[in-house]
């Protein structure tokens, strides 16, 4: 079981502020049966998370060493959750290696502004594919402006869809829950992930219970 969207890496973003809490988060994931985790710190310059790829790799190496030393049985890899803005040349930054793809593959975890859709939403998949990248829409269910039809057409152009497990549970915002269910029903979801932050734990037991009626495997490896 792979969790492809997790903010566990310490001191990289708002996910976890200390090594201890990171380890506790990871142990909790492992207890729920997660075997592999892709660590995806934010790239979100407007919110102040703009660590360079080299810095992240350094942090990752140190963290992976610590995890190995403690004997936590989790396969770690590094990715990045990139906030897309039209003004920034995100694709160019990926080309130059300033931003990270998922575990070194050609897949890119992309998030958007929740309140304002990008002007060129229908162009995004094409734009990335021109440079050989494939887009994974991070928590596709949380955007009020992103409807099922748009998601379906983006999928047709080669995008992947990730939803947050937490959105399926009680206590999540009604609209997001509705959209997440509709996405699952339409078989549009490729991955269900935790999007875990220290303040937002993920109850995988309950999530898996909710996912039982859908036949697909939502925890495939990135590759």
């Amino acid at each position: 079981m792979t969790d492809i969207h997790a903010h566990i890496l310490p001191d990289a973003d708002d996910g976890s502020s200390s090594l201890e809490s990171s380890l506790a988060m990871l142990e909790r994931e492992v207890a729920f049966g997660i075997t592999d985790v892709v660590l995806t710190p934010h790239y979100h310059p407007r919110r102040g998370y703009a660590k360079t790829a080299a810095e992240l790799k350094e942090l990752f190496a140190a963290f992976a060493e610590e995890v190995a030393a403690r004997g936590i049985p989790a396969g770690l890899s590094l990715g990045q959750e990139i906030c897309y803005g039209e003004r920034e040349d995100v694709v160019g930054m990926l080309d130059r290696g300033e931003l990270l793809t998922m575990n070194g593959t050609n897949k890119v975890l992309l998030e958007f502004s929740v309140s304002r859709p990008p002007d060129d939403i229908s162009e995004i998949a094409y734009k990335f594919s021109l440079h050989g990248y494939k887009v994974i829409l991070a928590h596709a269910e949380i955007y009020p402006w992103l409807d099922l039809k748009t998601i379906a057409s983006m999928k047709a152009e080669g995008c992947f869809v990730q939803i947050n497990g937490g959105s399926l549970l009680r206590g999540s915002a009604g609209a997001a829950k509705r959209r997440a269910k509709a996405l699952l029903k339409d078989a549009l979801v490729d991955w269900v992930a935790s999007d875990i932050h220290s303040f937002r734990p993920c109850d995988w037991g309950k999530v898996r219970e909710k996912l039982r009626k859908y036949p697909a495997d939502f925890f495939g490896k990135i590759g």
Partner: peptide
């Protein structure tokens, strides 16, 4: 054409290639 089925409703998305 790529088709996604939803019960009896057909959701059709075209790949604009």
């Amino acid at each position: 054409k790529v088709e996604y089925m939803k019960k009896d409703k057909k959701r059709v998305a075209q790949n604009p290639g």
